[in-house]
Simulated assay, not measured.
Amino acid sequence: MNIDTGPSIDTLRQTLQAQLRQHSQDLAVLTAAGTDPGSTGEDPQTVAERTVAARHAIEEIAAALSRITDGAYGHCERCTNPIPGARLEILPHARFCVPCQARAR
């Protein structure tokens, strides 16, 4: 990643760690809600869908943190080109550059 055009790796790591904490807290609340339907005021299907989304977010964020440790962070998993800093600032767990993400859909 070109740090000159976006946030530093340390800033992105801190953002990812904060997001990981938040999603983990959300998952704990949702898991408890799954054992006590109605405790969140949401229907069970919504709680189930939010639980799946929180788990997915945790997986994506953990993978991004792993890529930082491995030195692969900030490069597209498909074309290996650098992911622009602006994209990582918006979506710090991004695995693909925009063109490759668009092709994946």
Rank of each mutant, 00 (worst) to 15 (best):
L65A: 12
T51G: 02
T35E: 12
A64F: 13
S39N: 01
T40W: 09
D43Y: 00
E60A: 13
E59R: 08
R13Y: 04
L20P: 01
P44D: 07
I68K: 07
I68P: 03
A28F: 05
R13N: 10
L65Y: 11
I61G: 06
A53V: 05
P7F: 11
Q17L: 10
Q25W: 04
G34F: 13
Q45W: 09
P37W: 04
Q17D: 02
L12A: 03
V29E: 09
V29I: 09
R21Q: 12
S24T: 14
A48Q: 14
I58V: 14
A54I: 02
T15G: 04
P7K: 06
E42D: 15
H23S: 10
P37N: 07
I9K: 00
A48Y: 07
L30M: 09
A28H: 10
R55Y: 03
G41R: 05
P44C: 05
S39V: 06
Q22Y: 09
I9C: 01
A53E: 08
D26W: 08
V29W: 03
L16F: 10
R50P: 00
I61N: 07
Q45R: 10
D43T: 01
P7H: 10
A18C: 07
T35M: 03
T46N: 15
A63T: 05
E60K: 06
G38Y: 08
L12V: 00
R13E: 06
V47Q: 02
A48R: 13
G34A: 06
P37Y: 13
E59V: 04
I61V: 15
A57K: 04
S8T: 15
R55H: 14
Q17P: 02
Q17Y: 09
S66R: 13
I9T: 05
